[in-house]
Structure formats: structure tokens, C-alpha cells
């Protein structure tokens, strides 16, 4: 028995949200493991990736089938197109969370270079951006999407700050270089997560307003 079109759209929305929740959790736990130096938390993050990968495939399949079988138009078409693009961004966020766990694996076997302050702050903002981006998607809230995009600058600034600070450590003591480089990479991964959240917001704005806000420089 076939489901009604509306049910299928609802099911797609829920599936996107489920995947979003998973990658959010992965990011959260990877950073938590790093900051609280709990190496035993890392395997569970790695284990979540399999579910994310399956959802990545499922969502594309649902979208393709709906385009082929339902001929979506107008807002429905934009919703499905947005879901497909958001799907790619979410999968990349999951990959970045895995990258963070890999850095954490090497960082947690050696003494810390310094207490982590800016990286947790960055991660907090990036997670909030991701959460708000998904909320904006589910509720079709373009205003929330706009406001979320603006936070990306803050994450970029923090990344530069982390880089500058770690540079001073490396110059002062070359034995810190491998660990400092790992931290720079972590900040880079977090920054990329915020970028993907920004992409999701841009797709949400297109979905709600039918307006393409990509590649237009700073938002007014």
C-alpha cells in the first residue's frame, strides 16, 4: 500500500531531522571527548557514522523517488531539492566529526599543550548553528536561517585566533608542533562544520523564499 504524498513529505522531513540529530551528537561527543580528555568516548562517535552513512543513502533515494513518482512543484519541489542538498552537508559534518575523533585519538595519548578554551567556544557556536539550521529547515523559518548565517564570521575569527595562539606555542617550543598542528586541524574541522551549517541555512532560505542567497558576500 502506498503512502499519501503528504505523509511521504513528512517522512522525508523526519528522516532529515534524524540524520541532523545524529551528526549533531557526533560533533558534540567528539569535542567533549577531546576537551574532557575521555578517550573511551571516541569509539561511540565512530560507531554512529554507519547510521549517518545509511541515512545519507536513504534520503537521496527518498528524494529521487519522490521526484520521479510525484512530480513535485513549487514549494514541495524546493523542499525536496533542499533536502537533497542538506543531506550532502550533513554527511560532510559527520565526516568532520570523525576527523575530530581521529585528531583526538592522537592528542589524548600525550599531555595537553594548553588548556582548551577557544576550540570549545567555537564548537559551541558551530553546534548551535547546526541545531538552528535544522530547526529553520523543519519549521521553514527563513529568519532563523538568516540569523544563523551571521554567526559564521564569529567561528572564522575564533579559528584565526586559535591559529595565532598555537603559532606562539610552536615558536617557543618546537616539541609542541605535532600537538599544536592537531589542534589547528581540529579548529579547521569545527570551522568547516559551521560552513556546512551555513550552507544548510542558505538552502532553507531558498526553500522558504525561493531566493538564492549564495555567493553574494556579507548578508545585509
Amino acid at each position: 500500500m502506498k503512502k499519501h504524498y503528504r505523509e511521504e513529505l513528512g517522512n522525508l522531513r523526519e528522516t532529515v531531522l534524524r540524520m541532523g540529530g545524529l551528526v549533531e551528537q557526533m560533533t558534540h561527543r567528539a569535542i567533549q571527548a577531546l576537551v574532557e580528555r575521555k578517550i573511551e568516548m571516541l569509539p561511540e562517535v565512530t560507531a554512529m557514522e554507519a547510521q549517518v552513512n545509511q541515512l545519507h543513502i536513504d534520503i537521496d533515494e527518498i528524494c529521487l523517488e519522490m521526484i520521479a513518482l510525484r512530480q513535485p512543484t513549487a514549494a514541495d519541489l524546493r523542499f525536496i531539492a533542499a533536502a537533497m542538498k542538506i543531506n550532502t552537508d550533513m554527511e560532510r559534518i559527520g565526516d568532520q566529526a570523525i576527523n575530530i575523533t581521529e585528531r583526538a585519538e592522537s592528542l589524548l595519548t600525550v599531555p595537553p599543550v594548553k588548556p582548551l578554551i577557544d576550540i570549545p567556544r567555537m564548537a559551541e557556536i558551530a553546534k548551535e548553528m547546526l541545531r538552528d539550521a535544522l530547526d529553520a529547515f523543519v519549521n521553514g523559518n527563513d529568519e532563523l536561517a538568516y540569523n544563523t548565517i551571521k554567526k559564521d564570521d564569529l567561528v572564522d575569527q575564533l579559528k584565526d585566533q586559535v591559529f595565532r595562539e598555537l603559532l606562539t606555542y610552536m615558536m617557543a617550543d618546537p616539541t609542541t608542533i605535532p600537538r599544536a598542528l592537531d589542534l589547528i586541524l581540529v579548529s579547521r574541522h569545527v570551522e568547516r562544520i559551521a560552513d556546512h551549517a551555513t550552507n544548510i541555512c542558505e538552502d532553507v532560505i531558498f526553500m522558504v523564499k525561493g531566493k538564492d542567497v549564495r555567493h553574494q558576500g556579507p548578508l545585509a
Binding site: 502506498k2 504524498y5 520521479a68 513518482l69 510525484r70 512530480q71
Partner: peptide
């Protein structure tokens, strides 16, 4: 065929 797509198993 659009109809076939919409309604069919």
C-alpha cells in the same frame, strides 16, 4: 505516466 507514478506499487 505521472499518474502511474503517483498511485502505483
Amino acid at each position: 505516466m505521472q499518474q502511474a507514478g503517483r498511485i502505483s506499487d
